[in-house]
Design a protein around this nucleic acid. Structure first.
Length: 337
DNA sequence: CAGACGTGGAG
DNA sequence: TCTCCAAGTCT
């Protein structure tokens, strides 16, 4: 049977990850900490294990439990998240921590239905937490499992169009025992064996069930949707430097791009000519160069202005730790310094 | 429901 | 260098 093959493989090949209770410990009765499972799942959304690992450790050291995280100022959480991207995750993480700590007595809900009501927890994460943290049977479908199912069933349509079929395929294979190990095993399989490029079918424990493999088309799947051109936007940023290296920053709007993060003052970002923007303070501004940064839906070219500044004007503040800035602004500061 | 929403690493 | 990607969610 599919699931027992997968579970046997997981027992032998599970990755050792800082947030994971491995199959051996699990079998011996160890229970995962729901806080760790939740934190790791949110960090891992659209983010690689390699990127997440050190950041997970740092978060856990700074905020060991949900009560500590809930008590932290949002700005601190956003600063710790800087560089990880998709900052709505950090805003929702903090909002979720507050709900759990303040309204649920510090206890994470243990069902998909409850979990999905929390900020930043969607269908995937709700199912993953229910399965991994609480060993509840749940149909967990992430990008890895999409890919595995598309190959197993030889589905030659883009994933987005085949969601229902993929889910049905995942559901009929999900065992009612060891839900967490099964979900993690499938994800490990997708990450290490049934990879996006060059799947290693010779190592695959479920190759005999795979229709794509049987047809020899595993390398053609999943079918990717046509990619659209990335527009180029231009803008200006002002890097005001204090003698000790601190940078003049402003708090960005609560939502939208880099929402809630500390950022550099400057104008809007638009296609064509960079919109004019007045300096945040009167000084001897000079052009230091340009910084470029590619985001998901556009490429950005920033003209970097810089000056030495002594006093922060009303509404702005000094940032000494550049690690608390989104990468795009850190790049601009580097051009100026 | 397509689009907004980041970034660093692999090939 | 440059494209593609990585455990999605929200609107």
């Amino acid at each position: 049977m599919f699931s027992s093959r997968l579970l046997d493989w997981y027992d032998a090949h599970a990755r050792d990850l800082p947030w994971r209770v491995g199959p051996k410990a699990r079998a011996a009765g160890a229970q995962p900490d729901p806080y760790r499972v939740w934190l790791s799942e949110v960090m891992l959304q659209q983010t690689t294990v390699a990127t997440v690992t050190p950041r997970f450790e740092a978060f856990l050291t700074r905020w060991p439990d949900v009560a500590a995280l809930a008590a932290a100022p949002l700005e601190d959480v956003l600063g710790e998240w800087a560089g990880l991207g998709y900052y709505a995750r950090a805003r929702n993480l903090h909002a979720c921590a507050k709900v759990v700590a303040d309204e649920l007595g510090g206890v994470f809900p243990d069902t998909e239905e409850w979990l999905i009501t929390l900020p930043g927890i969607g269908p995937y994460t709700a199912a993953a937490i229910a399965a991994i943290a609480f060993d509840r049977t749940a149909v967990v479908v992430d990008g890895n499992i999409d890919r595995v199912m598309v190959r197993i069933e030889n589905i030659a349509r883009p994933i987005r169009e085949a969601k229902a079929e993929i889910r049905a395929s995942a559901a009929e294979r999900t065992p009612d025992q060891r839900a967490g190990d099964y979900a993690q095993g499938l994800m490990d399989l997708g990450a290490g064996v049934c990879r996006p490029r060059n799947p290693d079918c010779l190592l695959c424990p479920v190759a005999e069930f795979c229709e794509a493999r049987a047809a020899g088309v595993q390398d053609e799947l999943p079918v990717k949707p046509a990619k659209k051109a990335r527009p180029v936007r231009h803008g200006v940023v002002y890097v005001g430097l204090r003698e000790d290296g601190a940078v003049l920053t402003e708090r960005r709007a609560a939502k939208g791009l880099f929402g809630g993060m500390a950022g550099l003052p400057g104008g809007a970002w638009a296609e064509g000519e960079a919109p004019k923007a007045a300096p945040p303070v009167k000084a001897r501004w000079r052009e230091a160069g340009t910084a470029e940064h590619t985001l998901t839906h556009f490429h950005l070219i920033l003209t970097v202005m810089t000056a030495k500044i002594k006093e922060a004007p009303e509404g702005l503040f000094w940032t000494a730790d550049l690690e608390t800035l989104p990468t795009v602004f850190r790049k601009a500061v580097k051009i100026a310094a």
